[in-house]
């Protein structure tokens, strides 16, 4: 009989051989001390692995893992959005900023832009226009949950955009939900919206925006100490309706989204 190869010896140790083959191996082992040493090595290596890890099986499963499995309504957009926000907690850090009470909801492309009063000067409503070139670039090229950042000059002017979700609408357009912020020296405007791709450009379908006042300009430092985690806080909930109405078949998976970005959304 030919010398037993190492894989056969390991399979013998692991009880992976059928009984006749195992019997052959046993017979051969009797006259092959070198093979017996290899068998010992495989037995010992298996024994090393068995004990220490099994302790985990006897431990109670941490509550947060159970909660992750028991989380209701999997794949719900609010869950996905939450998970993506969590991944970029640094997006729109705002605890030091006061909120100005400009909130607007706009539905329907071309419906004219916000009529509420805007920050005088640098923050123009034009940044919210459907022809917003940076938004277009961000939505065209950036994966959901990833921050797109552009800075201009050294005056602290920055635009940050994060796509949150991608889906298809009933007329088979691709649509994306996003958060955006424009920071200038004395203020910040955050917005949250949905845009759909039509004739090669992303058209804003719905938008909600808010002005934030820079800390140094606050009249009363005690005016607003609210924790301000997502750009729009609870107001975003009203957006779920908009998205549910537009969305067909649920959000796209990251791979589908990556493929679309790679091929220019065709």
């Amino acid at each position: 009989m030919a010398k037993l190869d190492e894989e056969t010896l390991m399979a013998y140790v692991d009880c992976e051989l059928d009984p006749p083959r195992a019997a052959e191996v046993e017979a051969a082992l009797a006259e092959d001390p070198e093979a017996r040493a290899i068998v010992r090595m495989f037995r010992e290596s298996a024994a090393l692995m068995r004990g220490p890890f099994d302790e985990v099986l006897r431990e109670p499963v941490p509550a947060h893992l159970l909660a992750a499995v028991n989380a209701p309504a999997t794949g719900k957009i609010s869950d996905i959005r939450l998970a993506r926000r969590r991944s970029v907690a640094r997006f729109l850090p705002t605890t030091a900023w006061a909120r100005a009470a400009v909130v607007a909801l706009l539905v329907g492309a071309g419906a004219g832009y916000l009529t509420a009063q805007w920050w005088p000067g640098a923050l123009e409503p034009s940044t919210l226009a459907a022809s917003d070139a940076l938004l277009n670039e961000a939505l065209e090229t950036t994966a959901s949950g990833t921050l797109f950042v552009r800075r201009e000059g050294d005056a602290g002017v920055a635009r940050e955009i994060m796509p949150l979700l991608t889906f298809r609408d009933a007329s088979n357009r691709y649509c994306r939900e996003f958060e955006s912020s424009l920071t200038v020296s004395d203020g910040r405007q955050v917005s949250y919206g949905v845009a759909c791709r039509e004739r090669g450009a992303w058209q804003t379908q719905a938008l909600m925006a808010r002005q934030l006042i820079a800390p140094t300009l606050r009249g009363d430092p005690a005016a607003d100490h609210s924790q301000y985690a997502p750009a729009m806080g609870g107001d975003v909930a009203s957006f779920d309706t908009v998205i549910q109405q537009l969305m067909v078949n649920g959000p796209l998976q990251p791979e589908e989204e990556a493929a679309l970005i790679g091929q220019g959304w065709r």
Binding site: A2, K3, D5, E6, E7, M10, M41, F42, L48
Partner: peptide
């Protein structure tokens, strides 16, 4: 992969070379 992994693990944990490797015949 498993034969290589087991041999290597044995060497690392026991801190000695495993017996001579044997290929397929």
């Amino acid at each position: 992969r498993l034969t290589r992994a087991r041999r290597r693990l044995y060497e690392l944990v026991e801190n000695k070379p495993a017996t001579l490797a044997r290929g397929r015949n």
